Amino acid sequence: MKVEAYTDGAARGNPGPGGYGAVLIYTAPSGKEHTLELSGGYERTTNNRMEILGVVAALEALNRPCEVTIHSDSQYVVRAFTDRWISGWIARGWKTAAKKPVKNVDLWQRLLAAKEQHDVNFVWVKGHAGNALNERADELATMAADSDTLKVDQGFADAEEQGLW
């Protein structure tokens, strides 16, 4: 099954309240097109964490192996895979080329686990440029960031406590 996923993340302040959004589109064997929208918000987080979490949520929503194209306006997320940054981080024990700890390791590891059973391709799209599905993912992310039901981003809280932010 082929799935197109448009993902986005948002934060009001960096760090601050944040949210992710994802729009998944797939065509059933019957030929009927289906759309699934996902979102969630957090009390205190960063934009980059929400960008990653949008992709994680999209992949974790799939219940069988799929061919997935992730469309994201986050160079951080897309280039981690297209430029193989993540391979270098893993080879260096989750350190950057400058030998500093990679931020958001908890979410990168969760993303790697979520994509394991799928054939995933990452495509960068320009944000706020009229792509309707990217705009919808952005709308979902910002609505989640502004909602009254925000959760705790424990990974961010732990990193902040360790002085990594």
Rank of each mutant, 00 (worst) to 15 (best):
R44G: 00
W85N: 15
S72L: 04
G21T: 06
T69K: 11
H118V: 14
T27S: 10
K95Q: 14
N48E: 07
L112I: 09
I52D: 01
K151G: 08
T46Q: 04
L38Q: 04
S87A: 15
L133Y: 10
H34T: 15
A11H: 03
N47K: 06
G54S: 13
S87I: 06
E67W: 12
M1R: 08
K95S: 08
L133A: 15
Q117E: 08
S30G: 05
E116T: 08
S74P: 03
Y20E: 12
F156D: 04
E135P: 06
P29Q: 03
K126Y: 02
R92C: 00
Q154W: 15
F81N: 02
A91Y: 05
G16S: 11
S74F: 00
V125G: 09
F122A: 07
R136L: 06
G155E: 00
A61Y: 07
A159M: 05
A5D: 12
G163D: 08
D158W: 00
A11Q: 02
T27E: 08
A10R: 01
I70F: 06
F81S: 00
S147G: 14
V77C: 04
K151P: 01
Y76A: 00
A114K: 07
K95F: 09
A145R: 03
N121V: 14
A157K: 11
I86H: 05
P65V: 03
F156V: 09
E4W: 15
A144S: 13
T82R: 09
E51G: 10
S30W: 12
K115W: 00
T27L: 08
T45N: 02
R84A: 10
Y76P: 00
D83V: 05
V78Q: 13
N48F: 03
P17E: 07
N14M: 10
T142C: 12
A159Q: 10
M1V: 12
T46R: 03
T46C: 08
I70S: 01
N14A: 13
A132H: 04
F122T: 01
A157D: 14
S72W: 01
D153S: 01
R79I: 05
L164P: 02
A113V: 15
D148T: 14
V56C: 03
L133P: 05
T142K: 07
G54T: 07
T96Q: 15
D83W: 15
E116M: 12
A145P: 11
A159L: 10
D73W: 00
I90V: 14
A113E: 13
T142Q: 09
E33R: 14
A144D: 04
V123T: 05
D158N: 13
T35Y: 09
W85Q: 09
E161Y: 13
D138F: 00
C66L: 07
L38V: 06
K99N: 11
V125S: 02
Y6C: 01
A114H: 02
I70H: 06
E160V: 05
M1E: 11
